[in-house]
Design a binder for these strands. Structure first.
Length: 424
RNA sequence: GGAGAGAUGGCAGAGCGGUCGAAUGCGGCGGUCUUGAAAACCGUUGUCCGGGCAACUGGACCGGGGGUUCGAAUCCCUCUCUCUCCGCCA
């Protein structure tokens, strides 16, 4: 969430930036400022009274020691009213803080200066396109048909075991998954990312830290008995490694990578773009997560973009990089690049990665800070993350674009991992 | 799941209900000494919220919440977590 101090000092700018995200903030910002004001004045008064009470307690203590019981008892009476009023003020402060928090949590992150205005996906800005868009004749099969033809992905059995969106990968299909995961992890390691294997269930605090909770419960599967959530992305457990952490300046940037399965309820998304691998409830993804100094975070974002791009490039898939407009960005992001690969038989672009800088929006929730040498105060770090990459749509594009009369060709770079060159 | 023990500063580990934000040791940082390093010695060392340009200053924090008391790290209740033993188990 945004820090109230920042809002205080930059109200006009905040409103203007929120406008880019099509968020009308006037009312809620005013409410936040008002509550913060109440919070401050209440605390000032409470602190004053507490100081007085502390002082009295000390005096009473020494009076008792000196045997001046009468004076002590007299002084005691004064503390009674202080006790009353501090209790009241304490409650007032608590409720002001709570209410303020409730309000702050509803304000989205501010988009970066460079983010274009826009309503939705149609206003996004294509920053780069690479590769030939394959021209396939009408006999070209979409990946769900190829999956069946070569018996490598079994959607129906997944439905039986669990439900729609939980496919069973078989034989070379399963090996392809494993190959991609290992390839992505190896590449991440080469690029300087430290591999971790986090839990794939998280508690509420973690969900809150990265911004999935509150309000976005619909996205995550919830195990109610234990009050745990299945992760929608490794971003959640990996970033939360650093919840309540104060890093040293010299530890920055932190660069982590993790493979996890990801679980998404996708409540309310039906229609034809859910066909096959296009939208699943469970899928595999290798994620990269960075934590950096505010001055360097956009440089790191560019590095992450380069890394994700290199993966798609090596897989020899046609792709484009899209900078999201304000209206299409997530609640928590300040700047997001999406990566899309072209899936030849479906004849459409599929999002396979999303790389974002959250600036201090998550860090503020996470209380993730670092010690700055120049500044006495600990500063909020910037958090970033991106997919590198999500598997299913990569597989969809690979299957479709590489289909031949003899079978499906595996990209050269993957062959050492799959140990086969062709799915046939 | 059953029984017991515990939770204090980066770590280890003290702490008669008042002078405890907290002894001591280790670690970290700065310095003296040294050609350099080590050792030794000296100093320093948490977080958050207010006020102040600042020096500085008020308040809060000893797992979380509540209570007793003029006063709680210290007493009581409760929750959570950790550890040990038993059971079950990949």
């Amino acid at each position: 969430m945004l820090s109230i101090k920042y809002i205080q000092e930059n109200k006009e700018k905040v409103l203007e930036r929120l406008g880019i995200k099509n968020f009308k903030g006037e009312e809620i910002i005013d409410k936040a400022l008002e509550l913060d004001n109440l919070r401050k004045t209440t605390q000032a008064e409470l602190d004053r009274q507490l100081a007085e009470a502390n002082n009295l307690a000390k005096i009473i203590g020494s009076l008792f020691k000196e045997g001046k019981t009468r004076e002590a008892n007299e002084a005691k009476q004064k503390t009674a009213q202080l006790k009353e009023s501090t209790k009241e003020l304490g409650l007032k402060l608590e409720s002001a803080e709570k209410e303020l928090n409730l309000v702050l949590v509803q304000i989205p992150n501010l988009p970066h200066e460079s983010v274009p205005a826009g309503k939705g996906a149609e206003d996004n800005c294509i920053v780069k396109t690479h590769g030939e868009i394959p021209v396939m004749d009408n006999t070209a099969l979409p990946h769900w048909d190829l999956a069946k033809k070569y018996d490598i992905i079994d959607f129906e059995t997944g439905v039986k075991i669990t439900g729609a969106g939980f496919p069973v990968y078989k034989g070379k299909g399963a090996k392809l998954q494993r190959a991609l995961i290992n390839f992505f992890l190896d590449e991440a390691e080469k690029a300087g990312f430290f591999e971790v294997q986090p839990p794939i269930m998280v508690n509420e605090d973690s969900g809150f830290g990265t911004g999935q909770l509150p309000d976005k419960e619909g996205q995550m599967y919830h195990a109610e008995i234990d009050n745990l959530y299945l992760v929608p992305t490794a971003e959640v457990p990996v970033t939360n490694i650093f919840r309540d952490v104060i890093l040293n300046r010299k530890d920055l940037p932190v660069k982590y990578t993790a493979y996890t399965p990801c679980f998404r309820r996708e409540a309310g998304s039906y229609g034809k773009d859910v066909r096959g691998l296009n939208r699943l409830h469970q899928f595999d993804k290798v994620e990269i997560v960075c934590i950096d100094h505010p001055e360097n975070s956009y440089h790191t974002l560019e590095e992450m973009v380069k890394h994700a791009e290199s993966l798609i490039f090596k897989l020899e898939l046609p792709y484009r990089i899209v900078k999201l407009c304000g209206g299409d960005m997530s609640f928590t992001s300040a700047l997001t690049y999406d990566f899309e690969v072209y899936s030849g038989a479906q004849k459409k672009w599929l999002e396979v990665s999303s790389v974002s800088n959250f600036e201090s929006f998550q860090a503020n929730r996470l209380k993730l800070r670092f010690k700055d040498d120049n500044d006495k105060r600990n500063q909020l770090a910037h958090t970033l993350n991106g997919s590198a990459l999500a598997l299913p749509r990569i597989v969809a594009a690979l299957l479709e674009n590489n289909q031949t009369a003899e079978g499906i060709k595996i990209p050269k770079v993957l062959v050492p991992y799959t140990k086969f060159e062709m799915i046939n």
